[in-house]
Amino acid sequence: MQKHIVVIGAGPAGLESSANLSNLGFRVTLVEKEEVTGGHLNKWHALFPSLASGKHTIEAIVKGLNPGIKIQTATKVTGIEAVNDYFTVSGHNGWQEKADAVVLTTGFQLFDSHRKEEYGYGIYENVITSADLEKQFASGKEFVNRQGKKPERVGFVHCVGSRDEKVNNLHCSKVCCITAVKQAIEVKQMIPEADVFCFYMDLRMFGRHYEELYKQAQEKYNIQFIRGRLSESTEDKDGNIIVKVEDTLLGKPLRIKVGLLVLMAGMEFPPATKALTNMLGLKNVSDGFIQPLDEVLHSNLTEIPGVFIAGTCSGPKSVSDTMADARSAALAVAEYLK
């Protein structure tokens, strides 16, 4: 009998896992809470480091899907129960399936930048998040701030909601540094006369071509990198944002006025998914993400046989890392069901 696998979450990880599992000969059902598949990638204009289009990327992944895959959208999974050697997965709308294995590709949620009140998101109009900026890029409209002016200066704040125990997130979200570099370049491409600043604690350019992109940002776009974490921002009469940091490399407090401040919001494990992992009895470690059985040897396995993880539900990842993780999860499932 053809084994059945339920994949939960149709972002890049879920789509890619499903495609691979289906190609391996399994019956696959892909459940997604939203109306459409694609996850966060739908809202992301361009991907680092190549500036590949988010929309095209997701289209390419969807193209790879076998028509045999059943895609169940607009269904929020509310229950997973292990019964003997199979799982019963049920949704809020009465949808239910039996599965021989379950793959969690539930992803992350973007840190809610309102929680860093001192940065002014939701208070000052010209403080936006990296996600807001992607939306603005995707809209294709002229790049202006909330006063309809082209900002003369744009600031990027790294590590918003990441590496910050004041919001209970000690972990690094991994992708924000390179995203900031990417977005800084994009801003510069749109407004070549603007001055762009990145406020960072450490620049973590860990991936292939990331350092090159950083160098390009310096060399070609004259983006300034200031090593100092924002303490607070205020607004002047004209809606400019006044940023307070210490230029730690010079050892002096620095004040700078920018027309637009972009907060690089980090990744968090979504509380809604926590209900699912609790139901299964999976371990969420201190950073909130799901702990794999073994971080080196069995990164797609969990403590529960038959339950697999892929993508950002087991920690922040770039899209390319997510894709690789999804494919490796498919192999792990195949081995388990062999």
Partner: peptide, 9 residues
């Protein structure tokens, strides 16, 4: 109060 701009505003 300077760390709670919402209050100031």
């Amino acid at each position: 109060g300077h760390l709670t701009p919402g209050v100031k505003r």
